[in-house]
Design a binder for these strands. Structure first.
Lengths: 114, 114
DNA sequence: AAAATATATAAGGATATTTGAATGTTGTGT
DNA sequence: ACACAACATTCAAATATCCTTATATATTTT
């Protein structure tokens, strides 16, 4: 499959925010309502609602109403996979290529000084 | 491990851009230089260089010099994993929770009309 | 040495994101 | 009906991102 799946890239962009990632990480553990996040994140209620609205408008989460509570839950199946990657330990970097594939020569990465 | 690994979140944020993802997807296939991207992406050379600089400054890619070419390559091992997820086909959504875990009752998601 | 090539950097304005503050809405309890 | 609780929305300001235009740097070619 080709890369430019606009929706997924949009989703990734929305996900890639410290507060929203913490929200999503919590939701990955189970349903939570707004006031839960307020305590947990230490940010204002309107701000929590704003982040939740953004995630909701992108179809990443949804909620149902229980009295005056709104119980949020995860919808987008990509999210747990992203969270797994963020928690994964990576040792070192990818192997550097031997040389320039165009000219078949060139200085090696380690040789650069600048 | 706890979620807030600031570096990885920053990396994710930088990655989550349509042009940069296409760059990274190309680099995942092999070394490329700036003019390759210029053709491939159909954007201006300065803009290509800016995206490359951003990725470079975050340690996501690196390059080596071969004459007047700069041969870029992938460094961050998280990138291929992210690309895999973006290419993965997801069928449907995550299962909705049965009810509110706090009050043990509540309207179900499908029952909402608004 | 001058010109050309490949790329980087800087400056600028347009647009988008983020958050705080204020206000609205909806449901519950009395 | 009134007050409160839980949450959403709106507005505005600060900040960040993005791309264009212009200019700079380094290397090779002539």
């Amino acid at each position: 499959m080709a890369l430019p799946q606009k929706n997924k890239i949009e989703t990734l962009r929305v996900i890639a925010h410290p507060v929203r990632l913490r929200i999503l990480d919590e939701l990955a553990k189970g349903v939570k309502c707004v006031s839960d996040f307020e305590d947990f994140l230490g940010i204002s209620q309107p701000n929590v609602s704003q982040h939740l609205a953004l995630l909701r408008n992108h179809g990443i989460i949804d909620y149902y109403i229980d009295g005056r509570l709104r119980c949020y839950f995860l919808v987008d199946p990509m999210v747990p996979d992203i969270l797994d990657i963020l928690k994964k330990e990576y040792a070192g970097t990818l192997p550097a290529p031997a040389c320039c594939p165009i000219t078949k020569k060139g200085k090696y990465p380690g040789d650069r000084t600048n």
